[in-house]
Simulated scan of single mutants.
Amino acid sequence: MAGIGSYLKKHCEALVKDVGIEAACEITGKSKATLGRYYSDSDEHSDRFMPVDAVAALEKEAKFPHVTTALAELQGITLSYSQNRRNSESSGGVTSDVVALSQRFAMLMSEYTQSIEDGIITINEAKRLLRETVALQEVLLEMKLHLEEEAT
């Protein structure tokens, strides 16, 4: 459970940072301290998690459903977004998605190359790799939506 809890807390933190701490406080009606406890790695807060209604409210305003995606990944589920809940308003289609995918993958590989140069991936390097991985995932989801559009 400790690994799962830590994984979920990291995604809660990403969600709050995506929305912005001040906006997250306003949306959820929680203080900065309370939100911080939800994603704190401290032993005293290990059993505290963000309530589902707060996650739903924040993900409605976020650019990406961080916690929902994490929960799905833990269960081996792949998510598919409905047409009315897109991550971006891009209308370039599959061709522009392939270009964006290539660019994002190149950025991920660049980050990886820099991170592994000394044989150690630090916490900051891991965070940068994670950000690039999430960005790549977002492009893949958008590409999937465009492909589904063309298939119907």
Rank of each mutant, 00 (worst) to 15 (best):
L79D: 03
L145S: 08
L147G: 01
N124C: 06
K30S: 05
R37W: 03
Q83M: 03
K144N: 11
Y112T: 11
Q83F: 09
R104N: 09
A126M: 11
I21H: 09
E132H: 06
A106F: 10
L15E: 10
T95K: 04
T95I: 15
S115Y: 00
E111L: 10
G20M: 10
S115C: 13
Q75G: 15
R85Y: 02
E73N: 12
L74S: 04
S110R: 12
D41E: 11
A151Q: 10
L101F: 12
F105G: 01
R86K: 10
D43L: 02
R104M: 04
E89I: 13
A33L: 14
Y38S: 07
I4N: 06
K10D: 15
E117Y: 02
K127T: 13
A57F: 05
I77G: 03
E89V: 14
L140C: 15
I116K: 14
E44W: 06
K60S: 09
E125D: 14
I116H: 02
S96L: 13
E150D: 02
A70M: 03
R37T: 02
K17R: 11
K63F: 13
M143S: 15
A135Q: 07
T133D: 04
L141I: 07
R37V: 04
A33Q: 13
V16T: 08
E44N: 06
C25V: 06
E138T: 06
Q103N: 06
D43V: 02
N87E: 01
M107P: 03
G20E: 00
S40H: 05
R86L: 08
V98I: 15
K17W: 07
E142S: 13
K144D: 14
K63R: 14
V19P: 00
L136K: 04
L8N: 09
S110Y: 08
Q75A: 10
S80P: 01
S31Y: 00
A106Q: 02
T152C: 12
L35P: 06
L141M: 08
K60D: 12
Y81D: 12
N87P: 03
L8D: 02
K127G: 00
H66Q: 01
A106G: 10
T34K: 07
D53G: 03
L130M: 14
F49H: 13
A14V: 02
I21P: 00
G92D: 09
E73C: 12
A72E: 08
E142T: 10
A62W: 00
I116C: 09
S88I: 10
A151K: 07
K30V: 01
L15W: 04
E117Q: 10
Q103Y: 09
G76H: 01
R128G: 06
E148K: 13
V16C: 11
G20I: 05
Q137A: 12
L140Q: 03
A135I: 01
A100T: 05
E111Q: 04
L136E: 07
V52L: 14
R131I: 09
S90P: 01
E13Q: 13
N87I: 08
R104H: 09
E89G: 15
P51Q: 08
